[in-house]
Simulated assay, not measured.
Amino acid sequence: MPAPHGPAGHGRLLAGTAWAVLLLGLWLWGRDVTDGSGVGSAPTTGDIAAVGRPLGVALPPPHDPIGGAEPRRIEVPSIGVDAPVVARGLDEEGAIEPPPFAEPRTVGWYGDGTEPGAEGPALFVGHVDTETRPAVFYGLSATRPGAKVEVTRADGRVAEFTVDDVQVLTRERFNADRAYGPRKKGRAELRLITCGGTYDRASHSYDANVVVSAYLTGERAKGNGGR
């Protein structure tokens, strides 16, 4: 849904809510989690409700990991995302630094984590809005399972991912394993993360995160439509 806008200057507070919840995921980084049977196999419900997987949607089989390389650009055609990617580290509080607010159409990638195409989940973060207009991941909550995500890498390859799960995770019931851990061992995966849930005008912040999960289903040379 469209995000309401607060007064000028609220941007950093708004971003802080979104990225603070990443602390739990980073604390659990490298921890083995269960295979996640049932994750994405049916619509999600309750306070981590989002679209889940619509019944009857057939998803392609996973492609074997192709090894990692730094991402340069990310595309999600179904929601109109076509954006440059910049590597980001951790801020002084230990959370992933978001892209600068001066670059609202840029996506951040956690550069000390998994590279897209390698086994495990690669983390991508983007703003949902600024003080005055929508930002790069404004439409992320509208993503549906089966949607394609393409990551152009520094090695000239394009890693092709398929969305298999979309959730809105509230701070009160946040599950770091579910958000950041691998959904299935042995797969190359990614997460797309932004603000979500309810916007509080008083604090200029959101109370949840939209987390889109996808897995590698193909790869090709840049400029080549074939696999």
Rank of each mutant, 00 (worst) to 15 (best):
P2Y: 09
G9W: 14
G11D: 05
L13K: 10
G16V: 05
T17K: 06
A18S: 14
A18C: 15
V21D: 01
L22Y: 01
L22D: 09
L23W: 02
W27N: 14
G30N: 02
D32W: 00
D32G: 06
V33F: 03
D35V: 14
G38R: 00
G38P: 02
T44K: 08
G46S: 05
A49R: 15
A49S: 12
A50C: 10
A50K: 13
V51P: 03
G52M: 04
V57Y: 06
V57D: 06
L59I: 14
P60C: 03
P61W: 02
P62S: 10
H63Y: 14
P65D: 09
I66G: 11
G67V: 07
G68I: 12
P71T: 09
P71A: 07
R73F: 03
V76S: 01
P77W: 06
P77S: 08
P77R: 08
S78W: 00
I79A: 01
G80L: 08
V81D: 03
V81C: 04
V81P: 03
V85R: 01
V85D: 01
V86F: 11
A87F: 01
R88M: 08
G89R: 05
E92G: 01
E93D: 08
A95I: 03
E97Y: 00
F101M: 11
F101Y: 11
P104F: 08
P104E: 03
R105F: 05
R105T: 06
W109G: 07
Y110L: 04
E115R: 04
E115F: 07
P116F: 01
P116A: 14
A118E: 14
A118C: 13
A118H: 10
G120T: 04
P121K: 09
A122S: 15
L123R: 05
F124V: 04
F124T: 03
F124D: 01
V128F: 02
V128T: 10
V128H: 06
V128A: 08
D129V: 03
R133M: 13
P134M: 12
F137L: 13
F137P: 00
Y138S: 02
Y138T: 00
S141P: 07
A142V: 03
A142N: 13
R144V: 15
R144D: 13
G146Q: 00
G146H: 01
K148Q: 12
V149R: 07
V151E: 10
R153V: 05
G156F: 05
E160K: 12
T162W: 00
V163L: 04
V163D: 09
D164E: 07
V166E: 00
V168P: 02
T170S: 10
R171Y: 13
R173G: 04
D177R: 14
A179F: 11
P182R: 00
R183S: 05
R191P: 01
L192V: 14
T194Q: 00
G196R: 01
T198I: 12
T198Y: 04
T198E: 15
R201I: 07
A202Q: 08
H204M: 04
Y206H: 15
N209L: 08
V211F: 03
V211G: 09
S213R: 08
Y215G: 11
L216S: 06
L216K: 12
R220V: 15
K222W: 15
K222S: 11
G223C: 10
